[in-house]
Design a protein around this nucleic acid. Structure first.
Lengths: 224, 224
DNA sequence: CATAGTTTCATACAAATGTTTGAATTGCAA
DNA sequence: TTGCAATTCAAACATTTGTATGAAACTATG
């Protein structure tokens, strides 16, 4: 057996267990039992428990970031180098939301793991998240190009609010479902994305999406 | 010495240590050392570590909830039973933000504790937060009275977004500061509150605050 | 003062956890 | 096959953790 089989089993089992039961009460012994490998294998292949968690989180969030940047580039290409603010925000929040929301039964292990990572906040993941800022700067720059007259502070606040709504929706989706008694449909991922984008655009521009010409089309559709 | 002195020292020390270093790496032994009491005192006075944490969190959040409801009542009284949507949202997010934001040097221990509680997510606190929904229903009801034509789903989404922006601003204030290189002033608590209220009102009504008569006064002031 | 109830204390307990070790096994190349 | 490196394994380690115990000290009441 090549060395990769053990490694992969551990990653698999760890992601699944963390997704199901959270970081707090999953031990290395749980993981190696599920992966059917020896206890020492984790330290042999990853160095430590924290490095295992970090590797899981890094690979997943690199994927998300790649997706985000792809959508951003596509939007900018489509707009001849300057993307609409709504497209930029969609590229920012879309991949994360599509990854983490949707019907729970068909929610992937990876998605459930990332939700956990966003709810519980364990040290190795916190350390990685701090490096996310460079990635966000690219979106800030795109927004700046798209809204040349927007004040700096407003621009950052808009970016911050967009991420806030997206993350809190992922993190607290159960509360919203309970509070609204099911009226808010979190399985309609596209709808949720458009809602967040619409509100963010309003926050940034002070007016509804598309209000330049046809007066608040998108928002009216979404919010009335 | 009456029995309360030990109890109070423990609560004090625990809140301070948790605030400073987080729940993860503060042990009972750290707490009793800081409080200068015996190790067994915690179990004697609180039953268990989790109950100690719960008591800390409950008393702080009851205070916040009381403040929220007071502001809500005041706003409704001022409006003759029906408060403006902006006043309702201010009552919802104001107390929390005023409690947790502001210059860090003069940030109270209680504030720093509540920030921790919102960042890290330990089981005893999670359990309590789940009961918060009843409290939020009162705000949903007030919003319904204030916006009788608003769709149910939009109303809940608006409430959710308001809380999302507030919580994420508290939880991630460092990231926003770094990202904006200090341009976003998180010490201007009143300004932050107005920003969040303004965006939430737009999310709920599809238009800027006060746009009924004098066209986007509040928002223009805040965002231009 | 005496006694009953409360609180404090030193200490022990029991269990769990991540990590290390050194020997055994395996895979592969010479 | 032989030898060498990579991998696996069982077992032990070394801490750390919250909690329990039973005796001692204290407090207040009669």
């Amino acid at each position: 057996m090549p060395s990769d089989r053990t490694r992969a089993s551990i990653l698999d089992a760890a992601e699944r267990l963390y997704a199901d039961r959270g970081f707090a009460d999953v031990t290395l012994r749980d993981i190696v039992a599920a992966a059917d490998v020896n206890l020492a294998a984790v330290n042999y292949h990853f160095g430590s428990k924290d490095e295992l968690i970090a590797e899981l989180f890094v690979s997943r969030s690199l994927a998300t970031n790649r997706e985000r940047l792809n959508e951003l580039k596509a939007a900018e290409a489509a707009g001849g180098g300057r993307a609409g603010i709504d497209a930029i925000l969609r590229a920012l929040v879309g991949p994360t939301l599509r990854g983490c929301l949707g019907p729970d039964n068909e929610r992937s292990t990876a998605a459930r793991f990332m939700i956990r990572a966003s709810i519980e906040s364990v040290p190795p993941i916190r350390r990685i998240k701090n490096r996310e800022i460079d990635h966000l700067r690219k979106f800030a720059a795109a927004m700046r190009r798209s809204l040349p007259n927007c004040r700096d502070a407003d621009l950052y606040w808009g970016l911050h609010f967009a991420l806030a709504m997206a993350h809190q929706t992922i993190r607290d989706n159960e509360r919203l479902t309970k509070l609204s008694e099911g009226i808010c449909d979190l399985n309609d991922v596209a709808g949720v994305i458009e809602r967040i984008v619409a509100v963010s655009v309003m926050a940034l521009t002070g007016r509804a999406v598309g209000s330049g010409k046809s007066e608040t089309v998108a928002v009216r559709t979404q919010y009335r």
